[in-house]
Amino acid sequence: MKKVLAAGSTFAAAVLLAACGSGQVGGSGGGGVQNSKQLALIPGVQAEPFYISMQCGAEAEAKKLGYTINTSAPQKFDAALQTEKVNALGSNPPAALLIAPTDDTAMLAPIQQVANRGTKIVQVDTALKDSSVAVSSFSSDNTEGGKLAAQTLAQLVGGKSGSVLVLDTIAGTSTTAARAQGFSAELKNHPNLKSIGIQFTQNEPEQAAAKVTAALASTPDLVGIFATNLNTGEGAATGLRNAGKIGQVNLIGFDASPSEVDGLRTGEYQALIAQDPAAIGQQGVDQAAAALEGKPVTKTLTAGLHSITKSTMDANAQYFYKQQC
């Protein structure tokens, strides 16, 4: 965290120096955008089905509209690693950058640097606290997604009383924080269910598994777990499996990765809250193209969410995430 904050301070100073010399698309400013048809996508992390699905949607739409798009993702969901990817755009900035900021504060300075060179910024999935740098931001309504997860858990539990654990990822991640908050707020409307708090997993399945193991030992009446993304969900399933509690504790996962879908089918999960990442990628490109072509741009867009149980999964297969395009 100290490294991330230091990097943010360094880039903030650089932004102040560069702000007065920002280039424009097609302009003559040094280091500015040279190719008005070149887009870039920097997801939160590589090899995650959610972001792969987003990439597929973005690539298909870019091709349809006559743009090219290059995707470069950090190996971990980490602000310092993502900053390296953003900085790499400096010598040849794209006309537009689609990015899922991995930290809602630390990523502002490096993204602002790219914008100062004339690049249009479109936020996809996650967002900065200060979204003024972006021409458009497109994500799921994560607060509503958390609320939907709590409602789904309440339906599955029925009138049974018990405790509920919430597993979040990394502090400062806007999307998962909103999911956890929405879930916790809605849970208060169901007096038979009591939250034992939100715990962070650093987006590591092993840590999620360990948190579940500890919760099972300390909370005998645990009836539900809400995992705010696929890594925490997969780790939670491992923790329940190791304790022989599969099916005895309701696991609600966010997202619909191949492993989560398999887990829903086999009973490791009782429900999934699926997003539509392909639509986010597609419409993110649409907004970028509109900004570059001088057409109307929508500042904030919201993607749909879908509560899927084993009995409804076949009817909602279009929302399952991909491992390759």
Rank of each mutant, 00 (worst) to 15 (best):
M1D: 12
K3I: 13
V4H: 01
A7Q: 09
T10Y: 13
A14C: 07
S22H: 15
G27S: 13
G29A: 15
G30K: 05
G31M: 11
G31A: 05
P43S: 01
A47S: 14
F50W: 11
G57N: 02
K63T: 15
Y67T: 10
T68M: 00
A73G: 00
F77W: 13
A79G: 04
A79C: 09
A80Y: 14
L81V: 13
L81H: 03
E84M: 12
K85W: 03
K85T: 11
A88S: 15
S91T: 15
P93L: 04
P94K: 08
A100N: 04
D104I: 14
A106M: 05
L108F: 09
I111Q: 00
I111G: 03
I111S: 00
Q112C: 08
R117L: 12
D125E: 10
T126V: 09
L128D: 00
K129W: 04
S132Q: 10
S139H: 07
G146W: 04
G146H: 02
A149I: 02
A149M: 04
A149Y: 01
A150K: 11
T152Q: 03
L156E: 00
V157A: 04
G159K: 08
K160M: 06
L165G: 04
L165R: 06
L167Y: 06
D168I: 05
T169E: 04
A177E: 15
A177T: 14
R179Q: 06
Q181T: 09
S184W: 00
N189R: 06
S195H: 13
I196Y: 02
I196N: 03
G197A: 03
T201A: 12
T201Q: 09
E204M: 15
E204A: 14
A208I: 07
A209M: 11
A209T: 13
A210E: 11
K211F: 03
T213I: 05
D221H: 10
G224Y: 02
F226L: 11
N229I: 07
E234Y: 14
G235L: 05
A236Q: 03
T238W: 00
G239K: 02
A243L: 10
I246D: 05
G247W: 11
Q248A: 07
L251S: 07
I252S: 00
F254L: 02
F254G: 01
F254S: 01
S257G: 10
S257W: 00
V261D: 01
Y269M: 06
Y269N: 00
L272T: 04
P277N: 07
A279T: 11
I280A: 01
Q282R: 09
G284E: 03
Q287G: 12
A290S: 13
E293R: 09
E293T: 13
G294K: 12
K295T: 07
V297T: 10
V297M: 08
L301C: 14
A303L: 15
S307A: 11
S307R: 04
K310I: 15
A315R: 12
K322P: 02
